[in-house]
Nucleic acid binder design. Structure first.
Length: 581
RNA sequence: CGGGAUGUAGCGCAGCUGGUAGCGCACCUCGCUUGGGACGAGGGGGUCGCACGUUCGAACCGUGUCAUCCCGACCA
């Protein structure tokens, strides 16, 4: 490819609306352009990267025994009603009507469609196990798209679905996919951590996420992990053991239950200060609204509630903390005069009350009683707290708490989720009546798994990982081109003819080379080469009169002076060694 | 959905005590230059997000609306 014809417009400045590195870099280097919020054009450079990532995925998925197909992007409402998700999915599902007023949606994922495909095509146990995948645009109408390709509304995803006769088969395929994913990300030049996670709206029991650990602020997930063993989990799923703490109020003089005045102690800190006690002997009561119904969450006051866990404990799909007005409303409904800050489980017998495991440890504790400026002290669970709906782990894990497996302190880091794997079980096959006939001729629902990789997000994550002040340097496996040849002066015939010769030889060898034939000053060409991130650069300048050219490795900045033939050979060797040729 | 901000040329921005639009980069032409985003001369490109209003006159003032971005909430 001649640089003069390459469809790319590099910008001298970063776009003003970009926040994270990958977004800034990709726009500035001419890889992508925003069409509208959360929707991007993949320009030729970006498309080459995406195709390379896709092909790595294809090779590894095929090797793992999966078969590729392509499913529709527009899906009918009826299918989503079968699975029950039409009601459940929420606003993220982009709904639309066709000219006949039939309701449709843009596919945010394809469990429904693939289950429909399977039930028509997989009738016998002899056909199982089966794993089908596609690489397709997806659309999710995110509340707030941001971070460029990392959280767009339209994005490219590889989604795979496995069908097995039983849990054992699913377990095997789950492991098979986990191994394939590890290979895929490694081939993309990315180190990933496989972490336990919440299974979210897609449902199912077990799930793991593949995280690219990042130092930039683009990582949207907190990952807790243990250096001493293999434990690691997304914060929405992490569990921990707590270090020893004072949880018995009798140590602080609360030996019998009574109600005390606690003026102006709206916050836990104020309450601690007023009573001169640690927060570990306080029972904190938080009002949430889950699926439009009030839920009371109880937890030891020094800990935070993890909302995803709480939502799962209640079995809800939408959760938010209640506003002060809603708390007042709740109080009034129960004939209390309290306000936010003095909430307690007292008298709340008609709403769901979920207590965190930490509550079990509390003795002679302090708790709100729904009366402003008053608390109960010396309270105990059975005696003083009415019916708790149930106990559950709803606690947000924090740094330096202890690993649930080995007891060492947990560490935390940020991660970009580039892939995930779920055990779905029969969550979709049962309601959609997707069955096969077993050996006895009896209909059985498939045991399913699903496995996603964010293709465009993976590419963006690679930019987050591989960049410097001058631009990006994607690994050669996924870089848009392998190398660029830069004649310093296009007017110099020897320089031009040598550059052309090197270019021709590389192309002949199958190297994806670009010849920068533009009549620009060298500085412009060097800046563009660095910004776009050609892994290798061969510069033909004045030293060609001595028979030398310059070979530069973008990632390391290393520069060598060598003969043109050596440059050709070296480039071909490097590309071959990277496994690309 | 709450809080904050911004919409003027492809990109980055100025103009906003009202008088009919400008700068840098990019783009086209000519000259000159060629090892890290040169220089000179000339040129093309914008109904100033949209609508209504105030005014003799609106990019500028007012109202509404749409869009975009940031923080929060939410999120396979």
């Amino acid at each position: 490819m001649k640089m003069s014809k390459l469809f790319v417009q590099t910008l001298r400045e970063f776009p003003s609306d970009a926040e994270v590195v990958s977004h800034k870099m990709l726009v500035r280097a001419g890889y992508i352009r925003k069409l509208t919020s959360g929707v991007y054009e993949y320009l030729p450079l970006m498309w080459r990267v995406l195709k390379k990532v896709e092909n790595i995925i294809r090779e590894e998925m095929d090797r793992a025994g999966a078969q590729e197909l392509l499913l529709p992007f527009v899906q009918p409402k009826e299918l989503w009603e079968e699975s029950g998700r039409w009601e459940v999915y929420g606003k993220e599902l982009m709904r639309l009507k066709d000219r006949h007023d039939r309701e449709m949606c843009l596919g945010p994922t394809a469990e429904e469609v693939i289950t429909a495909v399977a039930r028509d095509g997989l009738k016998s146990y002899k056909q199982l196990p089966c794993n089908l995948y596609q690489i397709q645009s997806k659309f999710r109408d995110e509340v707030r798209p941001r971070y460029g390709l990392l959280r767009g509304r339209e994005f490219i995803m590889k989604d795979a679905y496995s069908f097995d006769i039983d849990e054992e088969g699913l377990d095997k395929e789950y492991k098979n996919m986990a191994d394939a994913y590890t290979r895929i990300f490694k081939r993309c030049g990315l180190e990933t951590k496989m972490v336990q996670s919440d299974s979210g709206a897609i449902g199912g029991s077990v799930s793991h996420e593949f995280m690219v650990i990042t130092t930039t602020d683009a990582g949207e997930n907190d990952v807790f992990y243990c250096d001493s063993c293999d434990y690691s989990a997304n914060s929405n799923h992490a569990v921990s053991k707590l270090p020893q703490a004072d949880t018995d109020g009798s140590k602080f003089g609360f030996t019998e239950v009574k109600i005390v005045d606690t003026p102006n102690t709206k916050s836990i800190d104020e309450l601690c200060e007023f009573l001169n006690i640690p927060s570990t002997i306080i029972l904190k009561s938080l009002v949430y609204v889950v699926d439009k119904k009030y839920v009371l969450a109880l937890i030891r006051a020094d800990k935070q509630v993890e909302e995803t866990k709480l939502m799962n404990a209640v079995g809800g799909i939408d959760i938010r903390i209640a506003s002060e007005a809603e708390i007042l409303d709740l109080m009034q409904k129960h004939c209390f005069n309290g306000k936010a800050g003095f909430v307690g489980p007292k008298g709340m017998t008609d709403i769901t009350i979920i207590a965190d495991e930490t509550v079990k440890e509390l003795k002679n504790f302090v708790v709100g009683i729904n009366e402003t400026d008053k608390h109960m002290v010396g309270a105990n669970l059975d005696k003083d707290i009415p019916a708790i709906t149930h106990f559950a782990d709803i606690r947000l894990v924090e740094k330096d708490e202890l690993c649930p497996q080995c007891g060492q302190p947990l560490k935390v880091t940020r991660g970009i989720e580039v892939g995930n794997i779920f055990k779905l079980g029969t969550k979709y096959s049962k309601p959609m009546n997707a069955v096969y006939l077993d050996k006895n001729g009896k209909a059985q629902p498939y045991v399913m798994g699903c496995y996603g990789i964010g293709v465009s997000r993976t590419a963006a994550a690679a930019v987050e990982r591989y960049h410097d002040d001058n631009g990006m340097f994607l690994p050669v496996q996924i870089a848009p081109y392998h190398c660029v040849i830069v004649p310093v002066s296009t007017k110099d015939e020897l320089q031009m003819s040598t550059a052309q010769k090197i270019y021709d030889e590389l192309i002949k060898a199958g190297v994806e080379a670009v010849l920068d034939d533009r009549d620009e000053r060298p500085g412009v060409k060097f800046k563009d080469a660095d910004l776009i991130g050609f892994p290798y650069r061969i510069t033909v300048g004045k030293t060609i009169t001595e028979g030398n050219v310059e070979f530069k490795t973008r990632a390391t900045g290393e520069i060598e002076t060598i003969k043109p033939e050596q440059a050709i050979e070296k480039t071909i060797d490097l590309i071959k060694n990277s496994g690309v040729l």
